[in-house]
Amino acid sequence: MYEGQTFETILERMLNRVTNNVDKRQGSIIFDALAPAAVMFAQYYIDLEINLDLVMPDTATDEYLDRVAVELDVVRKPAQKAIRAGQFYDSGNGPIDIPIGSRFSIDDVDFTAISKTGPGTYKLECETAGEIGNTIAGQLIPIDYIPGLATAVLGAVLVAGSDAEDDESLRARYFDRAQKPITSGNKYHYEYWAKQVQGIGDARAIPVWNGPNTVKVVLITDNKRSPAPEKIAEADSYIRSVMPIGVDLTVAGVRELAIDLSGALTLETGVNVSVVLGAVSDGLDDYLKSIALKEAVIRYSKIANIILDADGVIDYANLTVNGGTSNIVLDPDQIGIVGTVDLS
C-alpha cells in the first residue's frame, strides 16, 4: 500500500513545496535540511506497512496472529507433552515396580512415571513439551536411586507430543471459523469442536451416518495420521461436553489405507536408486498429507508425476498403485498413507 512512499519520492515532494528562487540542489542548505526528515517519513511509511500486515489475518504472525484469531474464539494450541511406555527390570531381568513420580533422564530430556499399566510397565510423561519426547529411544537413567532397579527402557509412544501450533495451522483454523457457517450442532460445529483438542489437526463430521440423529466425527493428528486411543477419547469427551443433547455421537480415528507402489525406473547414470526411492516416498507422503480428509481421490497421474519429478529419474514403466493403474477412491473416513515403494 505504501510501496511508493520512498525516500526519493518524499524528498522530491518536499522540495517541490520550496520556491524555485532557492537553491535546491544536492548539498544545498535546503536539501540537507529536508533530507533527514524525508528519511524519517520513509521509515514511518515502512512501519505503517508492517503494522498493517500485523493486524490482518492473512499476514499476521506470532502474537499478533493470536490477537486476530481470538476475535473468533480461535486460540493457538499450546505444546503438548509426549506420553511414552517404560519397562523396568531387576538384576534377574524380571519386571520391577517403581514409585509413581519417579524421574528418569535420557539425552538431556527427563521423564516422570505417572501411572502403572502392568508388571514393571508404566506410562512416562516427558517433562519437556513438544515433539522432542517422541523421537528419543534407549535406556533411561534414574534421577533418584530406586532399590532393586537394574534396567529401565523407554518404549513406545503412547500419546505423541506436539509443538505449539504454528502460524499457518492457526491461520487455517481462523479462516475455517470465518468462512464455514457454524450454527448450533451443524457438521461444521462438530469439526470445529474436534479441532480445539490439542493434537487433533483436522476432522470430518459425517451426519446421519448410521441413521437419524447420528453423527460420526473422524479425526487425524497434526501429522495426518490416526490419533492414539487416548487422544480419541479426549476428543470424544470434549465434544460431548459442548454438543447438543440427544445426538448419538461416534468419534473415531481415520482408517489408514497403505498406498503401495510397484514398477520399473529408468535412471540417469550414477544415480543411487535408494536415494530416488527416498525422494519418491517423501513426495508421496507430502501429497497424501496435503489431501488428507480434503479430497476423496488419490490420483494415479499425481503419483506418476511425483516419480518423474524425483532427481535422477528419466522415466518409469509398469507403474501400479495398490496393484492397479487407476485412481484410488477413499471412503469418507479414510486417508492414504505411504506403504511399500517397490521401484527398481
Rank of each mutant, 00 (worst) to 15 (best):
N318S: 10
A252V: 14
G199A: 11
D248K: 06
D108M: 03
E268F: 08
V22R: 13
E125H: 07
L11G: 05
V109F: 10
Y64G: 03
D167C: 01
S226F: 08
P244E: 03
R204F: 01
V338S: 09
K180P: 02
A317Y: 07
T183Y: 03
V159L: 11
A137P: 06
S262M: 12
I220C: 09
R177W: 06
N213F: 12
E191C: 06
M1P: 11
P99M: 03
P229F: 01
D167M: 01
V197W: 11
T121C: 06
T320W: 09
G4W: 08
Y44W: 03
Y64P: 01
I314C: 00
L48S: 06
D66S: 02
I220V: 15
A252P: 04
L284E: 11
Y2H: 14
G339Q: 03
S102K: 10
G185W: 02
L330R: 07
Q43D: 10
D202R: 00
Q80S: 12
N210V: 05
V247G: 14
P95V: 03
Q179R: 15
M243A: 14
T117K: 00
N305H: 09
S115G: 04
G101A: 07
L319C: 03
I298K: 05
A79E: 11
V68Q: 12
N51I: 00
V157M: 02
D331A: 13
E234Y: 08
S162F: 12
L158K: 06
R84P: 10
S102R: 05
D176K: 07
I337W: 10
F111Q: 02
V75M: 10
N322T: 13
M14S: 14
K116N: 00
D331N: 13
Y287L: 05
A203K: 00
Y174G: 09
G161I: 01
V276P: 05
N322L: 14
Q80H: 04
S301D: 15
A79G: 15
L34D: 05
Q198V: 14
T128A: 11
S184N: 15
V321R: 01
D260F: 11
R240E: 08
I259R: 08
A42Y: 00
L219H: 05
G211M: 10
T320Y: 02
L284F: 09
R225Q: 12
S91Q: 11
V280L: 06
G138D: 02
L249I: 08
M243E: 12
G92I: 00
K77V: 06
T128L: 09
S290V: 12
I220Q: 02
A228V: 01
K81G: 06
I141A: 14
E268R: 10
E127Y: 00
D236F: 05
N210M: 02
L284K: 00
A252G: 02
I259G: 11
Q5F: 13
G92A: 13
V215E: 01
I30W: 08
F111T: 07
K187I: 02
A60K: 07
Y300C: 05
V70H: 03
V338D: 12
V329W: 06
R103N: 15
P229A: 01
I114E: 02
V276F: 08
